[in-house]
Simulated assay, not measured.
Amino acid sequence: MRENVPWPDGGEQGPVTAARDGAAEDIRSFDAAIDPARAAGLLAALELVRADAARGAVLDFELLRRWQQHVLGTPDVPALRTLPAFAKGGAERYGIGPDTRARLDACLAQAATGPLPLAARAARAHLDVCFFHPFDDGNARAAFLTLLFVLAREGVKLDSVVLIRRVACRADEPQDALSLYRSIEFHLRDSRAAAQ
């Protein structure tokens, strides 16, 4: 389904200096309400995401693993899962094969450049992580961090991420991908307007 999403053209480009740190604020409210340790791990990973973006790191599975170690609070970086995974009450199944990692890295590489606008590249990278489902746990958080990395690499920080984190996407529904794109684009426009 990845190639069947009718991604829009255009959208405003360029850095956005947000008036506030929407990602960190959301983690402190949403994730801390679930578990303070979860929030602490995600905030530590967010710092790494931004440092990696600033140094021009290549987005690939190795980078995700470093972030995911903080997300999960594990002593070692987590490995690529070895068994099929299921989500949405078993409605979605994510297979695993000898080429899964290479395919994930190839998809993530497309977030760096290309014909798609920034919001579409960020949405697609987010969905790539969701639907490749590379880890045994914490894939939604890994996807969120991936999206933030794609934005940060282009100097974008958002005032809010509420709509982005509350959108549920099905792997077989291209319109869900567009809903995520529209949420990112909305927050980009809102953050840009607030910064002016």
Score class of each variant (00 low, 15 high):
1 M>L: 10
2 R>W: 15
4 N>S: 14
6 P>Y: 04
8 P>E: 05
9 D>G: 08
11 G>Y: 01
16 V>S: 09
18 A>E: 05
23 A>W: 08
26 D>Q: 11
31 D>Q: 11
40 A>Q: 12
43 L>D: 04
43 L>P: 03
43 L>S: 02
44 A>T: 05
44 A>M: 01
44 A>F: 01
45 A>P: 09
49 V>D: 00
49 V>T: 15
50 R>E: 15
53 A>H: 11
54 A>R: 14
56 G>L: 00
58 V>G: 00
60 D>S: 02
66 R>Q: 04
72 L>Y: 04
72 L>G: 06
75 P>S: 07
79 A>K: 10
81 R>V: 09
83 L>F: 11
83 L>R: 11
84 P>Y: 06
85 A>M: 13
86 F>G: 07
88 K>E: 11
88 K>R: 14
91 A>V: 10
92 E>V: 09
92 E>M: 15
93 R>A: 13
94 Y>H: 15
99 D>S: 12
100 T>K: 08
103 R>I: 09
103 R>G: 05
107 C>W: 13
108 L>P: 03
111 A>I: 06
112 A>L: 12
112 A>K: 13
115 P>K: 11
117 P>S: 09
120 A>D: 11
124 R>H: 12
126 H>A: 10
127 L>Q: 14
131 F>C: 08
133 H>F: 12
136 D>R: 09
139 N>C: 08
143 A>S: 15
147 L>S: 11
149 F>M: 00
151 L>E: 07
153 R>L: 09
166 R>P: 04
169 C>W: 03
170 R>I: 01
175 Q>E: 14
177 A>W: 14
177 A>Y: 14
181 Y>M: 08
182 R>G: 03
183 S>A: 15
186 F>R: 07
196 Q>L: 15
